[in-house]
Simulated scan of single mutants.
Amino acid sequence: MTWNLPNILTVLRLIAAPGVAILFLYFQRPVADWVALILFITAALTDFLDGYLARLWKQESKFGAMLDPIADKAMVIIALVIIVGLSTADKLVMDAWILLPATVILFREVFVSGLREFLGASAGMLKVTNLAKYKTTVQMIAIAVLFAKGVFEHHYLNLVQGMDAEIYEGVMAGTIEDVNGVVGYAQFMNGTWTVGVVLLWIAAVLTAVTGWDYFAKSLPFLREPKA
């Protein structure tokens, strides 16, 4: 194992993955939302930086090649669990728009990891494709946008705090003049959430496609020998 800057960045990204979840245990919102968003974006940027530096400085290593996809999966999976939990915290039912793409992503990651483990030495032919790299990028952007919505939501609650329910309904319905930019901010906040959900669905489709591609490539190694 070689300790160089690219590998250190990868290790830090792996540590940051559970750190995002732990923040919500020890910090109240919106502080937790802010810190989680900053930590996640910073860690996501290291995903590009560590590989770039390793290639630039010719410091590519087996340790980095092994740990990099693990750190990516840990970041995405833990962040998705948090987002699913936050999106349903004040509801009686699960949010299908978040739960379904999150389920696809989680299932694929578990399936492909199990496939690689089963194939053992033959798993080398399941190399990370460019499409798989794109799906990871879209996943991280989607998660960052969804985390950002949590930050905007708390600012929105501060805007409407103390506002009479009748006045609030009138403002939102357009029958009363907008107060503190509530309507515009609500549209911005909801738009952010919509963009995040759309990106998450795109990521889920890319994730499913790459999962099927890996499965198709593994089929020759899964067939039973002829008698």
Rank of each mutant, 00 (worst) to 15 (best):
M140K: 11
T137C: 06
K226N: 13
A43P: 06
V171K: 04
V160S: 11
M125T: 04
Y156G: 06
V76N: 06
L14Y: 09
E117T: 05
A71D: 03
A203R: 03
L25K: 04
V93Y: 14
V195A: 15
A144I: 05
G51R: 12
K58T: 07
K135W: 02
T88L: 07
I78T: 12
Y52Q: 12
I143T: 07
T129S: 15
T2I: 13
L56E: 13
Y214N: 10
P30C: 09
F188L: 14
F27C: 04
I167P: 00
L45R: 05
I22R: 00
V104C: 05
T192R: 02
W34H: 12
G184F: 08
M172C: 00
F118Q: 07
F152W: 12
L206A: 07
V160R: 12
Y52M: 09
P30K: 08
A165Y: 00
I202Y: 05
G124M: 05
L200I: 09
A203M: 10
F107Y: 14
E60F: 00
A173T: 08
G114W: 10
A186Q: 12
L157P: 00
A32Q: 07
G64V: 02
F63C: 01
P220A: 12
M189F: 09
Y134R: 08
A208R: 04
A16H: 03
P18D: 12
G174N: 05
F221M: 15
A21K: 00
D47Q: 05
A144S: 15
G114M: 13
A123V: 08
Y214L: 04
V151A: 10
V138T: 11
Y168W: 13
Q59E: 15
I202P: 01
Y214I: 01
D178E: 11
G19H: 02
T2N: 11
V205S: 09
D95A: 14
N158E: 15
E169F: 13
G174D: 06
Y52V: 06
V151L: 09
V182G: 03
Q187S: 00
L23V: 01
F48C: 04
K217E: 06
A123H: 09
N180L: 13
N190M: 09
F40I: 02
A17T: 03
W193E: 14
L45A: 15
Y185N: 03
V160K: 11
I70R: 04
L222N: 09
V128T: 08
F24I: 02
P30N: 09
D178F: 10
L100G: 01
K226A: 14
A144M: 08
I41K: 01
E153Q: 15
G170P: 05
A102P: 09
F152T: 09
Y156I: 00
T88P: 01
G162M: 10
Y185E: 02
L131Y: 06
V160C: 00
A144E: 09
G114L: 12
A186S: 14
A173I: 04
L219W: 08
G150F: 10
A208D: 04
V183P: 02
T137Y: 03
E166W: 02
G162F: 11
A16R: 01
A144G: 12
S113N: 13
A216H: 14
F40R: 01
L12N: 06
H154Q: 13
L126T: 03
A186C: 00
V183E: 07
A142F: 14
A148F: 15
I38W: 05
P220S: 11
G181D: 14
